[in-house]
């Protein structure tokens, strides 16, 4: 991207640079996921191809942040809040890089799903799920910008909505597969896409926890039992009937 020569003058500016890079990474990750879903829904394979290439930007940015962070730690030997800030930057950037990978993975499936015209109802749930996950990611990054950690707990609770939605989508896609074997291939890809989106929500939660730690020096209370109940779903006879 902008490979500008950053003549870093002061420690403060070094820190600021790290943080600003995270902002840029966040923007890229959000954009990639958003576009991947839209490529999926509109069967836009060209857009999908561009997204796959874009992932390199995120990888590069993450590597850059890692290197810069190591250099700062070595040269300045930061303590307390500054140290947390740097560790936080490393962690958040790796989460964002993963989000980008998940976006890329969705983009890669566009070709497979768009073979044969899929009915719009197949995508409706996926769009709703991705809206939830992207809202979560956006809010987390907005919190990172404003440092208003008091909003984090309500955010973490909303991750449950994503899990519930994912479970429901899982069920729905299974039903479509049972309705018509020709649906199996695209629906399997969509299942993976849904799982990816659900994982993006998890990364958003991770970032929220990192932000809380950076700002307060404390860890958020331990994660409640995580439960997206899709692992319990089987092809129960009742479900089979509903599919007919």
């Amino acid at each position: 991207m902008v490979a500008q020569q950053h003549s870093v003058r002061s420690y403060d500016e070094e820190l600021k640079f790290l943080v600003a890079r995270i902002g840029a990474m966040g923007g890229h990750a959000e954009r990639m996921v958003e576009r991947a879903i839209s490529a999926l829904v509109t069967s836009d394979t060209a857009l999908a191809q561009r997204i796959i290439l874009d992932d390199k930007l995120l990888d590069d940015a993450q590597r850059e942040i890692d290197e810069k962070a190591v250099v700062i730690i070595a040269r300045r030997q930061p303590l307390a809040h500054d140290l947390r800030e740097i560790i936080g930057a490393i962690r958040i950037s790796s989460d964002l890089e993963r989000v980008g990978d998940l976006g890329k993975n969705i983009a890669k499936r566009v070709v497979a799903v768009s073979e044969g015209l899929q009915p719009p109802r197949l995508f409706r749930g996926l769009e709703a799920l991705s809206d939830l996950a992207l809202t979560q990611l956006k809010e987390v990054l907005d919190i990172f910008a404003s440092r208003s950690v008091d909003r984090i707990s309500s955010l973490r609770d909303r991750d449950d909505n994503i899990d519930q939605m994912y479970t429901s989508l899982f069920r729905e896609l299974l039903t479509y597969m049972m309705e018509d074997p020709r649906n199996i291939a695209p629906c399997t890809h969509l299942l993976f896409c849904a799982k990816n989106i659900e994982r993006i929500g998890d990364h958003a939660t991770n970032i929220a926890e990192t932000i809380f730690y950076t700002a307060t020096g404390r860890l958020l209370p331990a994660e409640r039992a995580k439960d997206d109940r899709s692992h319990h779903i089987m092809m129960a006879p009742m479900l089979r009937k509903a599919g007919e």
């Binding site: 600003a20 902002g23 840029a24 923007g27 890229h28 990054l141 910008a145």
Partner: peptide
């Protein structure tokens, strides 16, 4: 929403 003074612009407006 609250774009408080002190916020870094590049963090709040992240679109490439």
């Amino acid at each position: 929403g609250a774009v408080l003074p002190g916020t870094m612009l590049q963090l709040r407006f992240r679109a490439p």
